[in-house]
């Protein structure tokens, strides 16, 4: 067993007085894809957002417990949030490209982190990221067009390209395919396969088949609790908890 990339220990998250996540412990290794499943409102997004401290932007949110990235406590005062988010990238449920050119969308991250020193280098990063996101062939002739002029699926792949342009160590995806048609979904799943190994990936999804297809391990959340966490094949064929079974057979959710 390799050392985990991310370790969460006894994490609870509160919005004001309400507890959205209750005592969750999980770890994610460098070379795997972990899927979070569970009924709507069970806290998947909330938990995902604690992993790169995006919850800091919600004034009422409070996090208890510990989360380590490579053994480093990310909620420690010495942790630099900006650097953390560069190392733990995020793709959101709704595609949210900047209202700037496609090129600028991808180049923004490397530029603010000073990852390049020459214009050519930046061009290479942009092209490489768009290629890995499977978008290059569709946009290579119109890099100066607005990112918001793309289709929904293209926008989502642009957001993925933007996330990987910073060369993060972990990518968090919150229902990246919920607004996409089956073809765009298939492209993104392919992309996840390709990115696997290079980045640790955590993906939230409502699509059981998708979880089964892309992940090695699956975590089932219910009402803020982590009900079951194990190999994806086990969860889908032989769930230990009754609630997990009910959920994946579609009895509720």
């Amino acid at each position: 067993m390799t050392t985990p990339k991310i370790t969460a220990r006894n994490v609870s998250v509160y919005y004001g007085a309400t507890r959205a996540i209750d005592d969750v412990s999980i770890d994610v290794t460098q070379d795997e894809v972990v899927a979070f499943i569970g009924p709507s409102g069970c806290g998947k997004s909330t938990f995902l957002r604690t992993l790169n401290r995006m919850n800091d932007t919600v004034p009422s949110a409070r996090v208890e417990g510990e989360i380590y990235l490579d053994g480093e406590d990310i909620y420690a005062p010495s942790m630099d949030v900006v650097q953390l988010r560069a190392r733990v990238g995020m793709v959101f449920q709704k595609p949210n490209p900047f209202p700037k050119s496609i090129y600028e969308n991808v180049a923004y991250g490397p530029r603010i982190h000073g990852l390049t020193h020459a214009k050519g280098e930046l061009d290479d990063i942009v092209e490489g990221s768009l290629r890995r996101a499977g978008l290059w062939d569709e946009v290579k002739d119109r890099l100066t067009d607005s990112g918001t002029a793309l289709s929904g699926g293209q926008q989502q792949r642009l957001c993925i390209a933007r996330a990987i342009a910073v060369d993060p160590e972990v990518i968090l995806m919150d229902e990246p395919c919920s607004a996409l048609d089956p073809i765009a979904t298939a492209k993104i799943e392919e992309l996840i396969h390709e990115l696997k190994g290079r980045y640790a990936i955590v993906i939230v999804t409502h699509n059981m088949q998708q979880a089964a297809r892309v992940s090695q391990r699956t975590a089932f959340f219910h009402l803020g609790h982590l009900v079951e966490f194990g190999a994806t094949s086990d969860i889908f064929t032989n769930p230990r908890a009754e609630r997990t079974k009910d959920y994946i057979t579609g009895r509720y959710g």
Binding site: N52, M54, T57, V82, Q83, L84, R85, A86, G89, M90, F92, K94, N96, P97, F98, P99, Y108, G109, I112, H113, C159, R162, A163, A165, V166
Partner: peptide
């Protein structure tokens, strides 16, 4: 969502 996008790339 634009703020989130920018924060998420660091």
């Amino acid at each position: 969502s634009i703020r989130d996008a920018a924060l998420a790339v660091g």
